[in-house]
Write a protein that binds this DNA or RNA. Sequence first.
DNA 1: GTCTATAGTAGGATAGAC
DNA 2: GTCTATCCTACTATAGAC
Lengths: 225, 225
Amino acid sequence: MNTKQRLIDGTLQAIRTHGIAGVSARTVAACAGVNQALVFYHFGTVDALLVAACHTATAERVQVYRDRFAAVGSLRELLDLGRDLHTEERKQGNVAVLAQLLAGAQTDERLAPPVRAALNLWTNEIESVLRRLLDRSPLADLTDPAGLARAVSAAFIGLELYEGVDPTGATAALDALDQLATLTDVVDDLGPLAHRALRRHTRKERPPRKQTTRRGLPQTPTDQA
Amino acid sequence: MNTKQRLIDGTLQAIRTHGIAGVSARTVAACAGVNQALVFYHFGTVDALLVAACHTATAERVQVYRDRFAAVGSLRELLDLGRDLHTEERKQGNVAVLAQLLAGAQTDERLAPPVRAALNLWTNEIESVLRRLLDRSPLADLTDPAGLARAVSAAFIGLELYEGVDPTGATAALDALDQLATLTDVVDDLGPLAHRALRRHTRKERPPRKQTTRRGLPQTPTDQA
DNA sequence: GTCTATAGTAGGATAGAC
DNA sequence: GTCTATCCTACTATAGAC
């Protein structure tokens, strides 16, 4: 039972070190310090091991942040938590693992569902915070928490990958988003006049574009609560 | 000379079909319809072929959109162009290629510089549009165009990968960003009162956070103009 | 459950004929 | 420039000893 865990940890380490392209039963076993044949004894295939590692790693990390997500009281605080989370998880290489798995899942349909489930674990946390924050904000009519949460997750992954090839640029990107977040403070502080202006804009329907979904997530499978 | 091009095209096709993890001299040659040994004759290593493909593909596509970037006159139009670009390039699989290369570059230091250069081709376009749009907007003091352009690029890549495992969620994310973009319309329309409020917020320095860069890109290598 | 050994396959790279 | 043939390495997966 201990070996299964060592293999999973070894898998995560292998992904961090060699990327999804460099993962093999041999590299994983080397990182785990166990025999290569044990990969197949315990998991059958390398793919299945990746699936197991994907779930374990994400569920663990989401759990760590659950309380902090629940304590968030403003968009500003959410952004700050996002930055902390980014710094901390980057150091541990957990976002990198998820990004690599996501890249691998693009062309591996057996990996796609577990990766989607893993992403949903993060997305659901963000979504519930956003729903809570935006519900009685003047932005309520303007935003779909579910969609926005997914946009945030996607951007997070993108920034992680971006940072891998251009750390300075990634820092500038985060700082820019930080500056931009001031906008939400402004909206919160402007008072009833701005609220009325916002509503005016919201009601004024924009010219329709060719879009599949107009608002919200009609029937997205959530995979994991 | 024709074979080099066929190999590059074959590489892009191989990345689209098999992902970065499935790229090899053999798969590339198969996609290109040429002999496997020609990869090494023309490019020396598979890595070098990836580098060449990375540059060619990106430069070509950026060129296609250059005029349309130049014609953008508002943030709303920029978002619309982004959506069009997303739809079109997704169909052709070009964003997917860049995303896969980016994932591969995380653990391949020979691939990282060319991928950064390729990303910069896109980022520079976006940055110049943002700079033009934001220069005389009330948002000018609030935003760093260089950083924001990088955030946009990163989010774009992230959304592409997200879409690969959850198309419905990705659509919801794009729709949410679309809704949110209304915020910029509001700011533009609120008039001098809001401008003054914005300035008040901008001047009121927020408590300092541990950040390496406070504003702008001091000395980021641009790689490619 | 864990190890060694090994079959069978795919991939990087080169030599040499054409 | 392009092809065949080939070497060597690394990989997945299994069989069988312990």
